[in-house]
Design a protein around this nucleic acid. Structure first.
Lengths: 130, 130
DNA sequence: GGTTATATTGACGTTAACGTTAATAGATTC
DNA sequence: GAATCTATTAACGTTAACGTCAATATAACC
């Protein structure tokens, strides 16, 4: 039974789909974000690799460094049978979440100010129309 | 009548208060983010300069480049008497706002996943306690 | 079987955002 | 008035995140 999970991608297929270069993908591998299988010398990416890469790109859009993104991705690699590992994971997850909530506040503040400027624009344009 | 608006800062005062280096502040000036008065050769910052710098730091926390931050700060420098300038400003403000809303979605998604991981942690820890 | 397409590693180049001296000058302190 | 503090400009150094060749190998096409 062929599942969607069995699909495989070449490096340029992934690069095209996700709007990045093959160079960047290899660079991310150097930095420990990915670890695809090989077929001979060639890299081959599975569904999980692709998911990790997408998560990485989201991290980039949010302004995180590749080091931070690797830390983030590592949160999904923890052995959930070992209690000490889970406890460590928990505190790191909570730290990251707190950081993201601060970032949400920054974002909200920035948006609020932009909306003020927008309203001001509309006002002035209304005035000149009269 | 002395207003809070008349207060002035030296470069190292600002740097200390905002948790950055004087080098960074001068660098931001090179990039056109600031333009403080001078007293002799020395820079002197007023309330507005300080506000701009704070906005810049918020932009940094959100992952924007100094170029993007300058564009953003320039939105506050528009002559609101000239209709064409207002119209141009309006579209740029709306573009920026749209970008921030996409970023909000990314943030929300990331937080949601972290909260899932957190819940999973709690579950596993509960199990081992029994 | 020669060209074209796609892959690899390796190495050097580039841009952003500062850090880090260095050399200099005015202000303050002892 | 010698030393210390704070400021300046200028210049070179550094790290991250890739871009851009170059040399090479395999696969696919005609």
């Amino acid at each position: 039974m062929p599942s969607t999970q069995n699909k495989l991608w070449t490096i340029s297929e992934l690069a095209n789909e996700l709007g990045m270069t093959t160079r960047a993908i290899r660079f991310y591998e150097d930095k420990g974000l990915l670890n695809p299988q090989r077929v001979g010398p060639n890299r081959v990416y599975n569904y999980q690799d692709r998911a990790r890469l997408k998560l990485a790109l989201r991290g980039k859009r949010l302004g995180f460094s590749l080091d931070e993104i690797r830390e983030f991705l590592d949160l999904y690699q923890v052995d959930m049978t070992k209690v000490t590992q889970i406890q460590f994971l928990l505190t790191r997850v909570q730290d990251k979440a707190a950081q993201l909530r601060r970032q949400q506040e920054d974002l909200a503040a920035m948006l609020k100010e932009l909306e003020l400027v927008e309203a001001e624009c509309h006002q002035h344009l209304q005035h000149t129309k009269l």
